[in-house]
């Protein structure tokens, strides 16, 4: 995950408290989704950014998961996300599975 994003998430978690945050990621493949999800739960697995060794254990969702899709404005979803969803190389299920796994590991 981008180092600036890591810094921003860390700062938000400190300011607002981890209980008041949910992270929604939009990685285009399962590998990218896995790294992003791990970064905000167990810490940056690449040990490159501000979240290296920092386990925030934030609930993380992929934008393509039904929980996200059903809770946002459908017109906006169609406008912002639908085309990217159609352009994916992997199946949605594969991409969201790694995010779900990271989230469920928090329980």
């Amino acid at each position: 995950m981008d180092l600036d994003n890591q810094a921003q998430i860390k700062e938000l978690a400190e300011r607002l408290g981890v209980e008041n945050l949910v992270v929604v990621i939009g990685a285009l493949d399962s590998g990218g989704a896995e790294i992003a999800a791990m970064t905000v739960t167990s810490g940056d697995p690449t040990y490159a950014g501000p979240l290296a060794g920092v386990s925030l254990r934030l609930p993380v969702y992929h934008v393509l998961e039904p929980e996200v899709r059903s809770s946002v404005d459908q017109a906006a979803y169609q406008e912002e996300v639908e085309l990217m969803e159609m352009a994916l190389e992997e199946s949605v299920e594969d991409i969201v599975a790694t995010t779900r796994k990271a989230r469920e590991g928090l329980d």
Binding site: L28, D29, G31, I35, L83, M84, M86, A87, L88, E89
Partner: peptide, 13 residues
């Protein structure tokens, strides 16, 4: 390096 295949993604879009 986790950025996927940029050209292909554009074409698919």
């Amino acid at each position: 390096f986790e950025r996927g295949d940029t050209a292909k993604t554009n074409y698919k879009m």
